[in-house]
């Protein structure tokens, strides 16, 4: 395995563990993740609702978690206990989920792993562009009956 591949594996594992911790700890229902695969920046997978975090400092790039609104609705019902979330609440939860998953990676990389505030959006906005000079990996995930994706683009 090359040094770049080893570095990516360390980073991917940090994000996957962070994602697993979130769902295991807060919902008591485990999340399953599957083998990451490479995607080009022009062909990324986006579902109904996405929370994205920009990354700077010791690592540069982004991470997003994209799922259907129903998944974030279920997270709210399970964790927050709010039984009638509206779409804005689900978008908020997508942002908060991505924030926590990214923020927890600081446990591995320290305080020079800088994260942005979350950006949330529905579908695929026409002005959305991803950098084409960093490797991008898609991590498929499944929580309860919901399929979603965590996408990691990091130098």
């Amino acid at each position: 395995m090359s040094t770049q591949e080893q570095q990516f594996e360390k980073t991917a594992n940090a994000f996957i563990e962070s994602l697993e911790r979130y769902f295991n700890k807060l919902t008591k229902s485990p999340v399953e993740t599957y083998a990451p695969f490479v995607k080009s920046p022009t062909d990324l997978i986006l579902k109904e609702c996405t929370g994205m975090i920009g990354i700077a400092g010791i690592k540069k790039g982004f991470i997003y978690i994209s799922g259907d609104l129903a998944m974030f609705e279920e997270v709210i019902k399970t964790y927050v206990g709010y039984q009638h979330p509206q779409k804005n609440d689900m978008l908020d939860m997508a942002g908060e989920l991505s924030n926590v998953v990214a923020g927890n990676v600081r446990e591995v990389y320290g305080d020079d792993f800088l994260i942005s505030v979350p950006v949330v959006f529905e579908g695929k906005p026409s002005n959305l562009h991803f950098p084409d000079d960093i490797p991008i990996y898609v991590v498929p995930m499944k929580w309860k009956t919901f399929e979603a994706y965590m996408v990691i683009g990091i130098q």
């Binding site: 911790r21 600081r106 320290g110």
Partner: peptide, 22 residues
Amino acid sequence: LSDKLTGLKALKKGAREYLYKP
């Protein structure tokens, strides 16, 4: 932000407690 340094910074700045999400 679950690195130990951030929690310590918060305490040094006057926070009484800190919790890490999730």
